[in-house]
Design a protein around this nucleic acid. Structure first.
Lengths: 161, 161
DNA sequence: GCTTGATTACTCGGATAAGCTTTGTCCGAGTTGAAACGG
DNA sequence: CCGTTTCAACTCGGACAAAGCTTATCCGAGTAATCAAGC
């Protein structure tokens, strides 16, 4: 079980965008340059975030991406779901239905004890992620390393008018 | 992010083995027949469980797999780790180190706020799974469907001497 | 100087390949039980 | 009838292929700022 690397990029990029002025859009290429990431591929991930309503995108000169809403209103879970999809990692294939005494009419996703156990664990995971917002993350970083936001904002908007 | 289907097979199979007499070994082919699974592939998964010390394997006639210890002492997490590996789903690639002001000497897996957030969520997931044993699962099934164990035990040992 | 129009550079967006993990299959090594044989 | 030897079937175990998903790249459509020309 391996989470897409795009999740890490997306979370870091959302945090970066939380630092720039709300009105300013930053191109994917510049956001990628922060970490030396392949620009086109990061762009693809940001597209997913835009489709999920986390970012808004603008084409043309002075275009780019910006947060669609306040950092307080974007949870880590929102970002993970946008990249990885909403489906659970564990997918009950209802193999109980294939056993000699299995009933094809029963929805084993709801009754199978194993499925329930796995689901409970995933819910705990989701709850934890839902409780952390981009604002929380940004705040923690600023508290540990004061000045990070200011430095990043300047770097991201350096070559701008 | 998708969990291997082998996890589901392994959990169900461990539950099934918990129902047979502790001394009896059941071949992979028979365990696979319960759910109509590809025998050779299930065998592969059970090998992983054996390497992890969850099952013991015996070759030759009347051989097969059996639980290496009491169902109470096998957690769902043990099984998941045996199949999926011990690594976290989210792997911090320390991309912060590649930023213009990143320090290659810093271990960003420990300090990065995003990495910590993801890690907390995974710990919650693991805690939940560690709290559920095979015995718990088997008990829940027997409580909901009394007689399941007896029926399965007979089916698994049907063609035996 | 101001308005208007064409132009140009810039940005996202989706379509298109390469790499890697997961899934699935196969045959060989080892072991056990049983059968055959001899005493 | 009992012990010994041979044999044959059975089972795991790891090596070998196919499929699907993740990662990566490219070029086209659209857009907004810019520049030039005309008023």
């Amino acid at each position: 079980m391996r989470m897409s690397e795009g999740v890490e990029w997306a979370l870091h990029t959302c945090a970066n965008l939380a630092w720039v002025e709300p009105g300013d859009a930053v191109p994917a290429a510049r956001l990628a340059a922060v970490f030396g990431l392949p620009a086109a591929y990061l762009n693809k991930q940001l597209q997913a975030l835009a489709r999920a309503g986390i970012l808004t995108s603008t084409s043309g000169p002075r275009g780019g991406f910006r947060l669609a809403r306040a950092p307080e209103a974007i949870s880590a879970l929102d970002v993970v779901v946008a990249i990885e999809g909403a489906e659970d990692a564990f997918r009950c294939a209802r193999i109980l239905a294939d056993s000699p005494w299995g009933d094809p009419a029963v929805d084993y996703r709801a009754t199978c004890a194993i499925s329930q156990t796995m689901r409970r664990a995933e819910l705990a995971w989701r709850r934890e992620l839902a409780g952390q917002s981009i604002a929380d993350i940004v705040g923690a970083v600023e508290r540990r390393n004061p000045g990070t936001g200011e430095r990043l904002r300047r770097w991201l908007t350096a070559a701008r008018a």
